[in-house]
């Protein structure tokens, strides 16, 4: 049963990877990366159930957290060219 879900998620992840490599603009790639992260969270959970070890869910939860923070960090870096504090003048002119 879970093997079907694993195969389906695997196919979906390969398709998302195609978009990640092809994607013309930076934002296509960031979008694909974020979607890949969501698929990975589901994949880890389903694989855990398939192996009868639902402890994998801790990893899935952590992956969801890191995926969100990572997406925001990438977007922030490409907008302000800095991950830490943003200088006030660049923030004002860009916003």
């Amino acid at each position: 049963m879970f093997i079907l879900a694993v195969i389906a998620l695997f196919i979906a992840m390969v398709l998302v990877l195609i978009r990640l490599f092809v994607g013309p603009s930076l934002y296509d790639r960031v979008l694909a990366l974020n979607s890949f992260g969501t698929h990975t969270v589901l994949f880890i959970g389903v694989v855990g159930f398939l192996n009868g070890r639902p402890d994998f869910l801790d990893i899935a939860l952590l992956y969801a957290l890191i995926n969100f923070v990572g997406t925001i960090a990438i977007l922030k870096f490409f907008r302000y060219r800095a991950i830490g504090d943003v200088r006030r003048d660049t923030a004002e002119t860009d916003g």
Binding site: M1, F2, L4, A5, A8, L9, I11, A12, M13, L15, V16, I18, R19, S25, Y27, D28, L31, A32, N34, S35, H39, L42, V46
Partner: peptide, 29 residues
């Protein structure tokens, strides 16, 4: 539920590959 979820996951990925431009891909995701 699980089969439906797998179906929608694949549909989202197919849409991400098939749709013509960035703004429509957002909806597929």
């Amino acid at each position: 539920f699980i089969i439906g979820g797998s179906f929608f996951a694949i549909v989202g990925a197919v849409g991400l590959v098939r749709f013509p431009d960035f703004w429509s891909r957002l909806h597929a995701v």
